[in-house]
Amino acid sequence: MVFDLSFIWAGLIAFGVLAYVLLDGFDLGIGILFPFLKDRQERHLAMNTIAPVWDGNETWLVLGGGGLFAVFPLAYAIVMPALYPLIIAMLLGLVFRGVAFEFVHRTARMQGFWEIGFWGGSLVATLAQGMALGALVQGITVEGRAYAGGNWDWFTPFSVLTALALLVGYALLGATWLILKTEGETLQRAQRFARPLALAFLVAIAAVSLATPFLHPQYLERWFGWPSGLYSAIVPVLLALAVWQLWSGLFHGHPMRPFLATVAIFVISFAGLGVSFYPNLVPPSLTIVEAAAPDASLKFLLVGAVVLIPVILAYTAFSYWVFRGKVKHSDGYH
């Protein structure tokens, strides 16, 4: 039974996580780029490009956590203790990042401090998410219905690699978002950031992609076996197309294309992860079906999700539409 409820939910949770990565990705990217912007005025301009939407973007993270709790409680119960220090670090990083939007405007003396908090919080949250991704791909030790590994299992060369990859990736999302939302000097600076970041991101994706198949025999089979490798090969082909779009968009100074191409690169890489994981939710052994809550839970929340997620997407799109266009210094939201 391929289309049982747990697979629909795995798809929805994956969609939620992807939405989070893309939306909060450019928010965090702005934070990462913060110290490289010219002056306070430019930093606040960059912050204003995301001020009306960051809260909605971060809500996808709550959907990721809350949704996992609801429909895959076992996965939630295993992954959270396994990645404990990373989750705590991410949450504390997000605390500093989140309050900074308001705090920087509420104080003259400590303005610089909250700007550093915005940068540091974004940096910590990104690195923690990237490491969590690496640790998950590597696999989590499970015994019975609980995490059975150590306190430091998540800290490996591979998880450091994925953390750096995500750092560069978010920074690229942030830079291309600035290309879309700003003009003049800031726009040019963002374009200058985007090219080396794009190169670095591609190198990082290549490194992660080459390392991943050798972590588990299943991954190797999925990517290089026959005939599964044939289908999987579509992923690198699509990736190459997106990279070409990104590069030509940057080269021609196109406002929107670099951002959309970066989004496409994220989506394709995410799909690649899905190819490696399936049918597991938590590699190497916890499957989607095993981790799922009873059908009564899945059905009840699915009714709400089917109705509400399209509505959420609609008003989220509306909000982006309301705040469309280039952001100017005179638009000061505070």
Binding site: T59, V62, L301
Partner: peptide, 20 residues
């Protein structure tokens, strides 16, 4: 986490609705 595993099927969807 043990609470999450045991009570998640009931509590989780309520929180899911809160988020959505």
């Amino acid at each position: 986490s043990v609470f999450s595993d045991r009570a998640g099927p009931v509590i989780g969807p309520l929180m899911g609705y809160e988020v959505l």
